[in-house]
Amino acid sequence: MKFAPASLALIALSACGPVQSTAYLMDAEVQIEAARTAQAERYAPYEWTSANLYYRKSKEEVGYSDFEQAVDFAQKAQKFAVQARENAMKATRKEEQPSPAKVP
């Protein structure tokens, strides 16, 4: 999270493709790490998988110098990572407080 302000400043200062995509990738990476900490891999597998796939694809697009696509995918990765973290946190809270109905 501490990288976010710096990367935003970097985006504001420059409209350059490589710089922008790198900044968004950094933000996505931060969010993915946060989701991992919240055990998203176990409790929000759909969002977790999506976040990681988009993150990898974004890096691949940087390799092809397709910065527009890279930014787009990095943003999606970030969005899924945030959702993954939130869902994982909700699920762990539920586990801690047993629900009235049980699904076998």
């Binding site: 597998p45 998988t49 999506s50 796939l53």
Partner: peptide, 21 residues
């Protein structure tokens, strides 16, 4: 099958992006 669904959706999105390129 959340992982498989996510993989399918993401790859479909990637394929469409590649087509656009």
């Amino acid at each position: 099958a959340p992982r498989e669904l996510a993989t399918a959706e993401a790859n479909l999105d990637f394929a469409q992006g590649e087509l656009a390129e």
